[in-house]
């Protein structure tokens, strides 16, 4: 049964051989980037273990943690925007998907880490 009240968005996804070539070269570039970032992350873990940079809670380890988080967000952004094609979707959809994380997860992390330090201080005293 063909329904004329449904807009078939799935058919608009089709592209030509030419466009496919371009998309594939973009995919391979992103693959290279994700691999390089992973290698850098492992190299940091290999050459700068936590025990050598001052242990948990030290400034040296804090710097490495921050570096890891920046690299993670970079990787996540490329996976979401290129592999999941969210970068090609409408702005409203993109915001609807990403804002819950930016608001709720950051808030949750802030609350839990603050509380964790309080719990830790309570156990120490």
């Amino acid at each position: 049964m063909v329904r004329d009240d449904i807009v078939e968005y799935s058919l608009d996804g089709h592209h030509s051989e030419e466009a496919g070539k371009k998309i594939r070269s973009k995919i391979f570039k992103v693959t290279a980037l994700l691999s390089v970032v992973t290698i850098v992350e492992v190299a940091i873990g290999w050459f700068l273990p936590r025990a050598e940079v001052g242990g948990l809670g030290s400034w040296g380890w804090f710097g490495i943690e921050t570096t890891y988080m920046i690299l993670t967000v970079l990787k996540a952004a490329y996976i979401i925007l290129v592999f999941m094609h969210l970068g090609d979707e409408r702005k409203a959809l993109r915001r609807m998907i990403l804002w819950p994380y930016i608001i709720f997860i950051l808030y949750l992390v802030f609350i839990l880490v603050t509380e964790a330090y309080a719990v830790n201080a309570a156990w120490l005293s």
């Binding site: 273990p49 948990l56 709720f104 997860i105 949750l108 839990l112 880490v113 964790a116 330090y117 830790n120």
Partner: peptide
């Protein structure tokens, strides 16, 4: 959001045991 909650809980447990002297929270390496 479920995974975000799980990883946040991991962060809570980790930072509540942040002192290397009194408790040891291992690293991956």
């Amino acid at each position: 959001l479920t995974f975000g909650g799980l990883l946040s809980a991991l962060g809570f447990a980790k930072f509540a045991n942040v002192n290397d002297a009194t408790s040891h929270w291992p690293t991956g390496e």
